[in-house]
């Protein structure tokens, strides 16, 4: 009885799939859902992009060392889920041959709401992000055409591309769209902060004080619910020997010297070390920067140039509040881990 009913269904299903044009695989539910208390995403068409098959392909690519010259490094080497997709404990990122970059890898989360990427905002389109780490000599050090060649020679990837796109043609844009599809599903919106916002949990007295202080001193740049206003600001970090010019290296405008992207503070508890060059080890040190260490260099943002007046206990409370931004389900969600 069972086989009799299921067989015609399977035939019908394969017929239906067969009807679609080769580039339009059968439509499946999207793995991208906008959290109720979030604004409309900046990026358009994310639901349509994030089909389960394309996300599965992107996930395979993200976790695969095949995309590094010597097969030792994957995207996940510097973007580890447990640490909100940062490289835990590393000031700057390590690539092939243990080569060092000059910047601290940033978390990957809520990317559909992000207008620019990198500490200096040099990339405007998430789709065009992966060619940077793949071809960068201090990261994965593999040319894009070699990367595509390796994928084309892999029966596993041919099958994954066929499932995602309807045929096994492997092009730059298909590869990059799959990367984006997976990364766009990295949505963090279920932290205790979010629970409190929707009224499901109560804050502790220290977290409540911290929240008030945060609103007063921090929220104008680290604006909820994304905890960034996506601007570039000079926070008075004394330039190091690397003399990273930050935003000015993109705009060539001297007024942007030493300005870096305001990072989101979601999951900040696990994304240490802090600052574009990872100079602060703990959240507490990073918060204390605004009281103790704002350097007198040209171009420091007026919001912080005179330092922020905080007692030690205020800093404790702010740190307590920031811990409520740790989203355990995001850090452990199976679907975001290795395939």
């Amino acid at each position: 009885m069972f086989t009799r009913t299921i067989l015609p269904l399977m035939v019908a299903a394969s017929l239906l799939t067969g009807c679609g044009s080769p580039t339009e695989p059968a439509s499946s539910p999207s793995l991208f859902v906008v959290p109720a208390h979030f604004p409309v995403p900046l990026r358009l068409g994310v639901e349509a992009l994030c089909t389960p098959e394309r996300v599965a392909l992107g996930r395979a690519l993200f976790y695969d060392e095949i995309l590094s010259r010597d097969y030792t490094v994957s995207c996940a080497s510097c973007h580890q889920q447990d640490y909100a997709f940062t490289q835990h404990g590393h000031r700057v990122s390590h690539g092939v041959d243990d080569r060092l970059g000059t910047r601290n890898s940033q978390p990957l989360q809520n990317l559909a709401w992000q207008p620019t990427f990198l500490w200096d905002g040099g990339i405007n389109d998430l789709d065009l992000f992966p060619p940077l780490p793949i071809s960068n000599p201090v990261e994965m050090d593999l040319s894009m055409d070699s990367a595509l060649m390796r994928l084309r020679q892999s029966p596993r990837y041919r099958a994954l591309f066929r499932a995602a796109e309807g045929d096994d043609s492997i092009s730059t844009s298909r590869m990059l769209k799959a990367f984006s599809a997976f990364m766009l599903t990295m949505v963090s919106a279920s932290s205790p902060y979010d629970e409190a916002v929707v009224g499901r949990t109560q804050r502790t007295p220290s977290q409540t004080r911290g929240h008030t202080l945060f609103q007063q001193h921090c929220a104008s740049c680290h604006t909820p619910p994304l905890f960034t206003d996506h601007t570039f600001r000079n926070t008075g970090l004394m330039p190091s020997d690397v003399n990273d010019l930050g935003r000015a290296s993109v705009t060539l405008d001297p007024r942007d010297a030493y300005a870096f992207k305001v990072p989101s503070l979601r999951n900040v508890e696990v994304t240490g070390p802090y600052g574009h060059d990872g100079r602060y080890r703990t959240v507490r040190e990073a918060v204390a920067h605004y009281r103790d260490n704002v350097a007198t260099i040209p171009g420091v943002d007026p919001a912080v140039s005179n330092g922020i007046l905080l007692r030690d206990s205020d800093i404790d409370d702010i740190v307590e509040f920031l811990r409520t931004l740790t989203d355990k389900s995001f850090l452990t969600k199976r679907e975001l881990g290795p395939p």
Partner: peptide, 8 residues
């Protein structure tokens, strides 16, 4: 080879 990946 004709594309800046870090500054699109």
């Amino acid at each position: 080879g004709m594309y800046w990946t870090w500054n699109s």
